[in-house]
Design a protein around this nucleic acid. Sequence first.
DNA 1: TTGTACGCGTTATCAT
DNA 2: ATGATAACGCGTACAA
Lengths: 349, 349
Amino acid sequence: MNEKDKVTIYDISEKLNISAATVSRALNDNPKISIKTKELVLKTAAAMNYKQNRLAQALKSGKTNNVGVIVPYIDRNFFSSVIRGIEEELSPHGYHVIICQSHEDVTNEITQINTLLNTQIDGIFMSISKTTQDTSHIQKVLQEKTPLIFFDRKKDLPGFSSVTIDDFNGGFSATEHLINQGCTKIVHFSGDLNLDIYKNRCDGYMAALKKHGLPIRKEYIIQVNSKIESGASAISELWELEDKPDAIFSAGDYAALGAIQELKRRKVRIPEDVCVVGFSNEPFTKYMELPMSSVDQTPLEMGKIAAQVFLEQVKGKQTLTIEKKVVLTPELCIRDSSNRIGKAIPTVA
Amino acid sequence: MNEKDKVTIYDISEKLNISAATVSRALNDNPKISIKTKELVLKTAAAMNYKQNRLAQALKSGKTNNVGVIVPYIDRNFFSSVIRGIEEELSPHGYHVIICQSHEDVTNEITQINTLLNTQIDGIFMSISKTTQDTSHIQKVLQEKTPLIFFDRKKDLPGFSSVTIDDFNGGFSATEHLINQGCTKIVHFSGDLNLDIYKNRCDGYMAALKKHGLPIRKEYIIQVNSKIESGASAISELWELEDKPDAIFSAGDYAALGAIQELKRRKVRIPEDVCVVGFSNEPFTKYMELPMSSVDQTPLEMGKIAAQVFLEQVKGKQTLTIEKKVVLTPELCIRDSSNRIGKAIPTVA
DNA sequence: TTGTACGCGTTATCAT
DNA sequence: ATGATAACGCGTACAA
């Protein structure tokens, strides 16, 4: 009873002395078929261990039921959470999720979009890499009438939907929270300003300062990367200044962590002397020596909503260029690193 | 210049007044073709923005260049790291990685294997769910002559390759390390013993005790899940005992974290009174109040090696049932939570 | 070196 | 209700 070769609808049509077309109809709930033969087909199909070849189906229909997701790195908590959201929303609809990593390199991004297109995926989800400037490779996707949905890191291009968080709001509320804690000299660790998300967080930061009548000081805005060391050395730099800051709002959690480590090394008290707020709400933030405040980007929800946008898009195919921009509100998680309430605020010497 | 419909080899054969076969040959570096026409085809193909339809190719060849990965949850650091390893090793060879989540439920696992098989993937990588007992759905994969490679959580079945870590060794060395710190009353938080990995860690623990002449006490082996609360309540239970332990070796980091939190609440000093070692080396362990010792499972490497095993398997197709078992050695990362000796030494990432 | 013809497994159109 | 046939896009024996 070994089935070495796949059984096709022809095998079963032969066995039943009917045509392959009828078999196909039976398998696809086609109304134009008698219940008798339908049941017969279904039964023997099961008996013969028949499996639909979705490849052939796909070639015929032009739909693969596969989508591609392009992210910088899949093992970054934020991205894997978004992917989880996408997968969980899409798999009940029969879609499979293919993952690609750009390693923050446009070159990879380009080839991945191309090979993804070649495999005839039904849609692409993508967070652009830091090095993506030119967008011609993305524009090309539009011509293939393949839906591409940006999440988190997007480019503002006509014809593309996106799901992002309100990074301006995130930066604004984090900064305002620090002001409410009594901080007035607030430093911002900014990320790569080529990415809108970091630009917006920075804008939000500045807007909050402005609203509260605080000066925007150039030397208080420092470009860092997402490494711990980067945050630490930024602190070293800052502590050379005459006028030392009393708060850090970092656009990333790792830089914030590095800052905290370096501040401790310098015996600076947190949050008494300096408050710190990060961004991303990485899992480690709540388990730190001093649980760190951070802005949560609700990645799971972001993934689910991106998937929903995709589903809408493929359903209502008539409207070719649907363009939907969803903006989620981030959530500020206040923890000990920026919570002075309940702690005695020391008199400044 | 809008190309609404995909251009095929027929379109380009028409334009050049040659046969589609010749075009195909040109595109595939077939030796039986003149350099002239080959270059001509390549040039016009590029000009017409031709893209291979890998779907048709796949249907023809029986190879999709897709592999499936089935894990409980994709946003768990360990799994996303393994997947990263698989992706990075396989993508240079033209493979795409499809991800599936079992949510620790065999039912999902079964349907995922089936749909994956229907889409004609070239291979499956999988870590079984906690609830997987019966393995008939896995056995079926063998008949389809589709390679399936286990990683981390495996079932010992003939015909299947696997890449795992030596969990026995992990449990053994962690326990021995605790003994070397002077601990004699060592508790083990065990995971679900349905999974070999947890059984082996437990066996390693017991072997270390035995080797050093320490008794194996039933009340010192506690079954926990991978939640923080589970570790905390285990401590509460243990602290009811007359004879309180002086060390915890947990088969998971989250339970270990819960234990540490509860111990602190009870003013138990770590590592002076109780040493703690976890398992998995989750990112948060090194950023904790007290950086936690843990056993690293080298997930990235595990993924890469699993991918290599797969590649070998599809290359040397002649040998049908190759069965390769790779066992990696885990790495004990000693940090403050179990380091009574050089306490001042800061832990390296 | 190039062209012809067929098949991969399905589904859809047209007859019957 | 069912059957024959074409077509999806490609690769490849076989023939020329």
